[in-house]
């Protein structure tokens, strides 16, 4: 397939782009890989030293697991692919500390209070509230973060949104017909416009007799990451995961 990728908009966690020259099966493979196969870092096990707050250790641990952490795929391996065979070593896990005590006033524990051993890994956002502590309550714990995949646990799903749809194209003398269109539409000049700029109103963006058709091999992707990755890296890792598996299959069949 000869692809053509055109950026529409994006800043870090969000990206919207048009892919031309692809088949529905291929873009769906990329979408599924983004949701389920791109590994992200997340807290996996927790040793609680002190928890005098009002919630159980287990609930607290789940909340910690769901905090998105920035992911460094160069520095870490999935535990099952690591040379330690999943026993746990510096190549596949990192220690995270949390030590907050509410002395004489109510205190909220935020994701930003997590101290990660490795400066490359940090909470993707500092302001996620984890628990309220009343005076004299304290939480002291040590957690271990590991890479994992979205198909095994939702905390490892790096893409909070990954979706595509066919690109619409404006055609001359199409006889109108559409009043409202959402998403991105290719104009008669070949530019791609975001219909939300016109509140979706076709009459404001196009001439009266313009009609619309879908472009068979063009797809508009909208991707949003939870902060584990930049959106661009998320897409590229998804494509790499497909290519690695295809390579593995070809090698296995050949032997």
């Amino acid at each position: 397939m000869e692809f053509e990728v055109e950026n529409i908009e994006g800043d870090g966690r969000r990206a919207a782009f048009v892919v031309r020259g692809a088949t529905p099966a291929f873009v769906n493979g990329v979408r599924r890989a983004m949701l389920a196969d791109v590994p992200t870092m997340a807290i996996d096990t927790v040793d609680v030293y002190e928890n005098t707050s009002v919630i159980f250790d287990e609930v607290l641990s789940l909340r910690l697991g769901l905090v998105p952490l920035t992911t460094d795929l160069e520095g870490y391996e999935l535990p099952e692919e690591c040379s330690c065979e999943g026993e746990g070593c510096t190549g596949c896990e990192v220690s995270v500390l949390l030590d907050v005590e509410a002395e004489d006033e109510d205190t909220t524990v935020y994701s930003g209070d997590l101290e990660v051993e490795d400066p490359e890994i940090e909470p993707a956002q500092d302001g996620i509230p984890i628990i309220d502590l009343k005076p004299d309550q304290a939480v002291v714990l040590e957690a271990t973060a590991r890479l994992g995949r979205g198909r095994d646990h939702a905390k490892n799903q790096g893409a909070t949104a990954a979706a595509y749809k066919h690109l619409y194209r404006a055609v001359e003398d199409g006889g109108g017909g559409e009043d409202v269109l959402r998403g991105y539409v290719e104009t008669l000049d070949g530019d791609v416009v975001d219909m939300s700029e016109y509140d979706g109103r076709v009459s404001e963006a196009f001439d009266d007799d313009v009609g619309f058709e879908t472009v068979d091999d063009a797809f508009v992707f909208e991707v949003e990451s939870d902060g584990s990755y930049e959106a661009e890296q998320m897409v590229s890792e998804a494509a790499l995961s497909l290519s690695e598996r295809a390579e593995e299959l070809a090698d296995t069949i050949a032997t």
């Binding site: 692809a22 590229s236 390579e247």
Partner: peptide
């Protein structure tokens, strides 16, 4: 045929990845 299809898929995914990195 399976081997050829898997090889084609690998090439496609790699070229897609290059395009994405160049464009975004």
């Amino acid at each position: 045929a399976i081997e050829e299809a898997a090889n084609n898929l690998q090439e496609d995914a790699e070229s897609f990845e290059e395009e994405v990195r160049a464009a975004l």
